Simulated scan of single mutants.
Amino acid sequence: MHGPGDFHRPTSPITSRKVYAAAHVIPHMDADNTPGAPAVIDWEATLAYRHELWSYGLGVADAMDTAQRGMGLDYAATCELINRSAQEAATVIADNRYPALTSLTVRDIIACGVGTDQLNDQPVEPGDLQLVIDAYLQMLHLVENSGAKSILMCSRALAKAARTPQDYVQVYSTLLDAAQQPVILHWLGEMFDPQLAGYWGTTDLAEATAVFQSILEKHSEKIDGVKVSLLDAEHEKQLRATLPSGIRLYTGDDFNYPELIDGDGELHSDALLGIFAAIYPAASTALQAFDASDAARGRTILDSTRELGLHIFSAPTFYYKTGIAFLSWLNGHQSGFQMVGGLHAGRSFPHLVRTFVLADTAGLLLNPELAAKRMEELLAVYGAKTTTRTLTGVS
Results as ranks from 00 to 15, higher is better:
residue 177 D to G: 03
residue 161 A to W: 04
residue 181 Q to W: 02
residue 183 V to S: 01
residue 145 N to D: 15
residue 164 T to K: 13
residue 142 L to S: 10
residue 101 L to G: 05
residue 118 Q to E: 12
residue 175 L to G: 10
residue 179 A to Q: 01
residue 112 C to G: 04
residue 109 I to G: 02
residue 101 L to H: 01
residue 179 A to C: 00
residue 186 H to C: 08
residue 176 L to V: 13
residue 180 Q to M: 11
residue 140 L to V: 04
residue 180 Q to P: 07
residue 107 R to N: 08
residue 163 R to C: 08
residue 109 I to F: 06
residue 166 Q to E: 14
residue 107 R to D: 11
residue 109 I to D: 06
residue 117 D to W: 00
residue 156 R to Q: 01
residue 146 S to R: 04
residue 126 P to V: 08
residue 168 Y to R: 11
residue 115 G to M: 02
residue 107 R to I: 04
residue 151 I to Y: 14
residue 141 H to A: 03
residue 120 N to H: 11
residue 112 C to L: 02
residue 123 P to D: 00
residue 180 Q to I: 10
residue 109 I to S: 02
residue 128 D to R: 02
residue 187 W to K: 07
residue 175 L to A: 13
residue 150 S to D: 09
residue 169 V to K: 13
residue 122 Q to R: 13
residue 164 T to D: 06
residue 120 N to M: 11
residue 171 V to H: 05
residue 131 L to F: 00
residue 133 I to C: 14
residue 113 G to L: 04
residue 115 G to Y: 01
residue 112 C to V: 09
residue 178 A to S: 05
residue 180 Q to C: 11
residue 125 E to I: 04
residue 110 I to Q: 07
residue 137 L to H: 09
residue 149 K to E: 09
residue 127 G to L: 05
residue 129 L to S: 12
residue 132 V to F: 08
residue 167 D to S: 13
residue 156 R to E: 01
residue 129 L to V: 08
residue 138 Q to P: 00
residue 135 A to L: 01
residue 142 L to D: 10
residue 135 A to I: 11
residue 119 L to W: 09
residue 145 N to G: 14
residue 186 H to K: 04
residue 162 A to E: 08
residue 128 D to K: 07
residue 127 G to T: 01
residue 115 G to E: 04
residue 159 A to F: 10
residue 174 T to I: 05
residue 125 E to T: 13
residue 117 D to K: 05
residue 166 Q to I: 09
residue 108 D to F: 12
residue 124 V to W: 13
residue 160 K to V: 02
residue 106 V to L: 03
residue 145 N to E: 15
residue 138 Q to M: 14
residue 121 D to M: 03
residue 140 L to S: 00
residue 167 D to W: 15
residue 182 P to Y: 13
residue 108 D to T: 00
residue 111 A to V: 09
residue 149 K to V: 06
residue 143 V to M: 12
residue 154 C to S: 15
residue 157 A to F: 01
residue 139 M to A: 06
residue 142 L to K: 12
residue 158 L to M: 02
residue 187 W to F: 12
residue 118 Q to S: 10
residue 182 P to D: 07
residue 127 G to E: 07
residue 128 D to L: 10
residue 155 S to L: 02
residue 172 Y to M: 10
residue 186 H to Y: 15
residue 118 Q to F: 00
residue 180 Q to E: 15
residue 130 Q to D: 12
residue 107 R to L: 03
residue 104 L to D: 03
residue 104 L to C: 12
residue 116 T to R: 11
residue 111 A to I: 13
residue 113 G to D: 07
residue 164 T to H: 14
residue 138 Q to K: 15
residue 152 L to V: 14
residue 164 T to I: 09
residue 149 K to S: 06
residue 113 G to T: 12
residue 154 C to G: 10
residue 166 Q to M: 13
residue 117 D to A: 14
residue 121 D to R: 03
residue 161 A to C: 06
residue 108 D to S: 01
residue 167 D to H: 15
residue 167 D to R: 06
residue 182 P to T: 13
residue 122 Q to N: 03
residue 116 T to I: 06
residue 140 L to H: 05
residue 133 I to Q: 07
residue 150 S to Y: 07
residue 136 Y to C: 13
residue 166 Q to L: 13
residue 184 I to Y: 02
residue 171 V to S: 09
residue 161 A to G: 01
residue 114 V to H: 10
